[in-house]
Design a protein around this nucleic acid. Sequence first.
DNA 1: GCTTGACTCTATAGTTAATATAGAGTTTAA
DNA 2: TTAAACTCTATATTAACTATAGAGTCAAGC
Lengths: 135, 135
Amino acid sequence: MKIGELSKVTGCSVQTIRHYEKEHLIASAERSEGNFRLYDEAAVEQLLFIKHCRSLDLSLPEIRQLLALNRSPGAQCDDVNRMMDRHIEQVEARIQELTKLNEQLRMLRRSCSNRRTVEQCGILRNLSATPVSSG
Amino acid sequence: MKIGELSKVTGCSVQTIRHYEKEHLIASAERSEGNFRLYDEAAVEQLLFIKHCRSLDLSLPEIRQLLALNRSPGAQCDDVNRMMDRHIEQVEARIQELTKLNEQLRMLRRSCSNRRTVEQCGILRNLSATPVSSG
DNA sequence: GCTTGACTCTATAGTTAATATAGAGTTTAA
DNA sequence: TTAAACTCTATATTAACTATAGAGTCAAGC
């Protein structure tokens, strides 16, 4: 199967597949006589694995690590667990940040009703004031 | 005041200030005989405004628009309100996404306890299965 | 055999908002 | 006068793609 079909089957764009190859997330594909990349079912599996990881916001280096672990089935999987724990922490921290941000934005938004001039605009006035200390 | 002092006063790095100038968020600074940028209090105010906006995750183009509006005090401030509403929507959408993601990650994490081999690892097994359809 | 269209190839640039660097010039204090 | 501290411009890096240019390959139809 050529790259276009792999793209259709997996839902990854052609460029993304080539990008993953360059980043060594998938092995360099075999080539046809005309230098076209050729793939098999194993490539589909691996690409779907990567896609699933990406849908969970795992980074490419993290995925590379998971793929490496996948290749040594006898090893302990502590590393996998640690990675997931760290990742979950990051996601939760980001949710907290955004929640705080959201409160600030809503407060700011309440400081102006539509029918005012820029001069009277509470939003712009508040933005000009000294910033609140927070991330 | 030279760029180093402006940096200290505002808490923006020197490179960031130069970056904002290149992106036309602040006017090109006057120059000294030796070609050093020179700033006054107005520059401090404007930079703090920008910093405040950035702390609310407003993009540089959004900030540019706010600064432009700030310069026409007689205009209606509907545009400001619309921008804030859109921005709040985006932040809330992102919070929703991350919340869903967090649930998925936690579920995945529960599928493996530490003391297993990679081969038995529930996390890796689940990642290899067909991905759930969700952003 | 030739052309057309769909596909693929590589290499490069763009996206965001900075951050970091190299190599040069300026200013200030000792 | 010389060294330190500062500033200048221009360029590269970050993440994970996405988009483009310009060239090559392949299958079908005439």
